[in-house]
């Protein structure tokens, strides 16, 4: 198969980027999108040109590192990670536009690679539980009902790829943050930090320069893990409650009239 590629080239964070056209030929329909980019890079290498930088790690749809925007769709048009897109899904001779994620909180490092450590810092601000070291705890000491377990797991499957942020016209990370908050706030292990978690994560999310949600729902439509939009509803609810229940550091001494 033969494809025309319009690829974003940008040398580093500071430089300005532009689209560059490439043609790749002899692509196996069964090769993945990333393998097609590998072939392009091999070709560029032979021609002694700078190869196209793109991110990838597991290449089996687990990690979400392959943060490409293909024809305007973050992680490609199939609601899977970009590595799970196969060239047979494109028509022969098609022109394919490949871009990095476009939002201020994920600066472009080179070509198609963005720095998504903002999401890591949101996790650091509350996406954890406190636990004790020592002997293995009794398995039944913290009962979790199957319903709660399933619901928490539906949120926990978020791989943090950032496609939600890239799809959002506001560059909002609320689907990601909502998934993390829902996962931990539903389970008994997450209860001690329930309020501090949501406040910390939302504050960090805002500090990283992510936008706010306007309920377009595009994040959920591109999410490779099919995270449901209700995690944002839960995030809103948890944040509102946390701010209400927040205790002052020291309550004032009370006196009689």
């Amino acid at each position: 198969m033969r494809f025309n590629l319009e690829i974003w080239r940008q040398f580093d964070r500071e430089s300005n980027g532009h689209f560059e056209s490439f043609t790749v030929d002899g692509i196996d329909p069964e090769s993945s999108f990333l393998e097609m980019l590998d072939q392009l890079n091999a070709q560029l290498g032979r021609e002694k040109q700078r190869m196209v930088a793109f991110d990838s790690d597991c290449r089996e749809g687990i990690c979400g590192t392959c943060s490409l925007v293909i024809d305007g769709y973050p992680q490609g048009p199939r609601q899977v990670t970009a590595c799970q897109i196969y060239m047979r899904e494109f028509t022969d001779g098609a022109t394919i536009k490949v871009e990095p994620y476009r939002n201020s909180a994920f600066p472009v490092m080179r070509d198609l690679i963005t720095d998504r450590s903002a999401l890591d810092r949101v996790i650091q601000a509350g996406g954890y539980i406190s636990t004790k070291t020592g002997p293995q705890p009794d398995p039944n000491s913290m009962p979790v009902s199957p319903e709660t377990q399933k619901e928490a797991f539906d949120a926990a499957i978020c791989i943090g790829c950032g496609a939600c942020v890239a799809a959002c016209p506001n560059g909002s990370a609320m689907l990601f943050t909502g998934a993390k908050v829902k996962h931990l706030n539903l389970l008994p292990q997450g209860q001690p930090e329930r309020t501090t978690r949501v406040i910390g994560m939302v504050e960090q999310m805002d500090a990283e320069g992510f936008g706010g949600c306007t309920n377009y729902g595009e994040c959920s439509r591109v999410c490779p893990q099919e995270i449901s939009l209700d995690v944002i509803g839960m995030l809103n609810r948890e944040y509102r409650k946390a701010r209400k229940d927040e205790q002052p550091a020291h309550r004032a001494k009370m006196t009689a009239q």
Binding site: D71, G72, Y73, E99, R102, N103, S104, A105, A166, A167, C168, P169, N170, G171, S172, G209, F210, G211, G212, T214, N215, Y216, G217, E218, R221, V222
Partner: peptide, 25 residues
């Protein structure tokens, strides 16, 4: 909120429409 959103997603790279309703746009 709009000012913040425009900073978070520079308007020169608009997000492709992936099913958002025309009312919301």
């Amino acid at each position: 909120l709009r000012a913040r959103n425009r900073k978070a997603r520079p308007p020169e790279y608009p997000a492709r429409r992936i099913g958002r309703s025309w009312e919301s746009r």
